[in-house]
């Protein structure tokens, strides 16, 4: 399998990949604005507990730490997969993609558990403005991660069946941008939502 360094494509094709990378970067910037506004809304509404559960009542430091660890690790394992891709090592790419998927899936499982637990205790998004904004902010991030997981599966399939071709490599790198971006959003989430909520 060819490493990225050894690939040869027409100049036109190379330009197309640069355009796609720039376009995807712009999409991430628009997504950053969406999250920024969700954060702003959260800050505006964090005190609107309507006599219901407050952040301290519903957040758990240990669970937030576990979720953080899984996501952070998954960013690193994706990076290892990217290095393997650049070196043309197909089996390693598949292995590290799979590990990344498991870590990401673990994050989602923990988060679903967190939400389910909160809802069971009555801390539903319908309970108050604070909870509506919490579930929407963290839930939107979780939705993005879930879409990322589907993308990882699709990528796995493409690497498996098409090999490490230039189009596959280009899509892979865009997935990387997406995945690392989501980790950055998570850093802001625990810094703005969980940690201040538990102070």
């Amino acid at each position: 399998m060819s490493s990225i360094a050894a690939m040869t494509v027409s100049p036109r094709e190379a330009e197309r990949y640069e355009e796609k990378e720039f376009g995807f970067w712009l999409y991430l910037m628009s997504d950053a604005v969406i999250f920024a506004l969700l954060f702003a809304t959260y800050l505006i509404m964090v005190g609107n507990t309507a006599g219901g559960p407050t952040p301290k009542d519903v957040f758990s430091l240990e669970r937030a730490a576990a979720e953080t660890a899984l996501l952070l690790l998954s960013s690193t394992t994706f990076g290892i997969a990217a290095v393997s891709l650049s070196a043309g090592e197909r089996m390693k790419v598949l292995l590290w993609l799979a590990i990344t998927f498991l870590l990401g899936a673990g994050f989602i499982v923990l988060e679903i558990g967190e939400f389910a637990g909160m809802i069971a205790e009555g801390a539903r998004p319908q309970r108050s403005g604070f909870l509506s904004s919490f579930f929407t902010l963290v839930g939107t991030h979780g939705l993005h991660v879930s879409v990322g997981l589907i993308w990882i599966l699709v990528m796995f399939g493409q690497v498996l069946f098409k090999g490490l071709t230039a189009p596959v490599a280009s899509r892979f790198m865009r997935l990387g941008l997406f995945w690392h971006f989501l980790d950055i959003i998570w850093v802001v989430i625990f810094s703005v939502v969980y940690l201040p909520g538990l102070l």
């Binding site: 360094a5 494509v9 197309r16 990949y17 990076g79 990217a82 290095v83 650049s86 850093v187």
Partner: peptide, 22 residues
Amino acid sequence: ETNAGIPIERTMKPYLIGIVLA
């Protein structure tokens, strides 16, 4: 570094530094 418009990740070093700092 890029080739064919696609970024090349030569080493794991940045990721290891990154995760340690993070």
